[in-house]
């Protein structure tokens, strides 16, 4: 298990061990691979494709692809970044992301990715889908306008909370997150302290009465791009 090997990301040789995904090995080495559906501690999912890398010339999701000796991984190249930007833009036009009044603004991973990539406006037309909002629960609400279908709540509820509060229903563009009840969130066993609630990377699952507590200028992505914490490890190690 602890047997190590080396592989290459963007011309840098890094170490990995068997059982690690490319994303995990890279992260440990202080190389940030942008991601959205991935959350440490949850089963890798591979749905957002934001972590797409070219691995030995083929596109693969770094969050699900095991690292292997001698792999040549392209992470920060222009063509890979172009694909990722395109995917982030797709997610922006797919939902109704009104950042200007969203409680998660400044702390949102989708937004963070867009900032990191310097996206000023998406190249695709906004789809403005009709989505609903579930505010039935006393402490939590779901705004499906902002859901990116990453499945983090689904997995966290199942794997961390042992509750199965969330699941996917429908398919294709009609796919959506559903709660484990006839009608609404209030009927489920969800609690405000659930990992599933904290797992949402965007403003789709939010705690009530907690909005806008962090002032503008002090929020997670106000000054440093998403992934900076990981990249600092590399700098620190080099020094």
């Amino acid at each position: 298990m602890s047997e190590t090997f080396t592989f290459v990301i963007d011309d840098k040789e890094i170490e990995g061990c068997f059982g690690q995904t490319i994303l995990e090995a890279a992260e440990e080495a202080g190389v940030y691979i942008p991601r959205l559906c991935h959350l440490k501690g949850l089963t890798p999912f591979g749905s957002c494709r934001v972590c797409t890398c070219m691995v030995n010339g083929r596109a693969m999701a770094a969050c699900t692809q095991p690292a292997a000796p001698g792999m040549i991984v392209e992470n920060a190249s222009e063509r890979v970044t172009e694909i990722r930007k395109s995917l982030v833009e797709m997610l922006f036009v797919e939902g109704n992301h009104f950042c200007m009044f969203c409680e998660r603004s400044g702390d949102c991973e989708l937004q963070g990715l867009a900032y990191r990539f310097g996206i000023a406006a998406p190249r695709y037309p906004y789809l403005f889908p009709e989505r609903d909002l579930d505010a039935s629960h006393d402490d939590i609400f779901i705004d499906r306008n902002r859901c990116v279908l990453c499945g983090r709540c689904v997995r966290a509820s199942r794997e961390k909370d042992g509750k199965h509060v969330f699941g996917f229903v429908g398919r294709g563009p009609a796919k959506r997150v559903q709660v484990n009840a006839e009608a609404a969130l209030a009927e489920t066993k969800v609690a405000v302290t659930d990992e599933a609630v904290a797992a949402c990377p965007v403003g789709a699952i939010l705690k009530k009465r907690t909005a806008y507590r962090v002032p503008v200028g002090e929020r997670r992505y106000d000054h440093e791009p998403i992934g900076s914490d990981i990249e600092k490890r590399r700098t620190a190690a080099a020094e």
Binding site: C48, M90, L91, P173
Partner: peptide, 18 residues
């Protein structure tokens, strides 16, 4: 393809519509 996409991954779910 739009009707038959499972909707799991972003590029297929959104890209085909676009």
């Amino acid at each position: 393809f739009i009707d038959e996409s499972c909707g799991y991954c972003t590029p297929c779910r959104v890209g085909n519509v676009l």
